Amino acid sequence: NQASVVANQLIPINTALALVMMRSEVVTPVGIPAEDIPRLVSMQVNRAVPLGTTLMPDMVKGYA
């Protein structure tokens, strides 16, 4: 199964993503693939992302 990017902490709106904020986990539904974690670093989220939430492409500015 494909691992997705999951929030490792609460990520406030407009926060630039850092490695420590993300982990990979096999979840349903599938979100952003875990292999894209390096690409996500320094991109901003466009909403608050609670701990344990799967990151979806529409949550990250400039990802989709």
Rank of each mutant, 00 (worst) to 15 (best):
A3H: 11
L10T: 08
R39V: 11
V49Y: 01
Q44K: 13
L51G: 12
L19D: 08
R39G: 06
N8F: 04
V30Y: 13
M59E: 02
L10A: 13
K61L: 12
I13H: 12
P12A: 10
M56D: 04
K61I: 14
L17N: 02
M43P: 01
T28L: 08
A48Y: 14
Y63Q: 03
N8I: 07
A16Q: 12
T28A: 10
P38A: 10
V41C: 06
V20W: 15
D36M: 11
I32Y: 01
T28Q: 10
Q9H: 08
M22S: 02
L40D: 00
D36C: 12
A16W: 11
L55H: 00
V45K: 00
I32T: 02
V5I: 10
A3K: 09
A16H: 15
G31L: 02
D36L: 14
P12L: 08
P12R: 07
S24E: 14
M22Y: 02
V5A: 09
I11H: 01
S4T: 04
V20I: 12
Y63H: 04
T54M: 03
Y63M: 06
L51E: 15
A7K: 01
R39I: 09
I13Y: 11
K61S: 12
G62D: 10
D58H: 09
V45Y: 00
P38E: 10
Q44V: 10
L10Y: 14
V27T: 13
Q2H: 12
G62H: 10
V27R: 07
P38Y: 12
N46W: 05
V26Q: 10
G62I: 04
V27K: 08
V30L: 15
S24K: 09
T54E: 02
Q9A: 12
V45F: 00
E25H: 07
T28I: 08
Y63A: 03
V6L: 07
Q9S: 12
V26T: 10
P12T: 07
R39Y: 06
Q2F: 14
V6S: 00
M59C: 05
V49D: 03
L55Y: 00
S42I: 03
A34Y: 10
V27Q: 04
Q9N: 08
M22C: 03
G52T: 01
M21A: 04
G52E: 04
P57G: 07
S4H: 01
S42Q: 10
V26L: 11
L17F: 00
P50K: 09
N46L: 08
M56T: 14
G31C: 03
R23K: 10
M21E: 03
G31F: 02
I11L: 09
S24Y: 08
D58L: 10
A16T: 10
E35N: 09
D58E: 13
V6R: 01
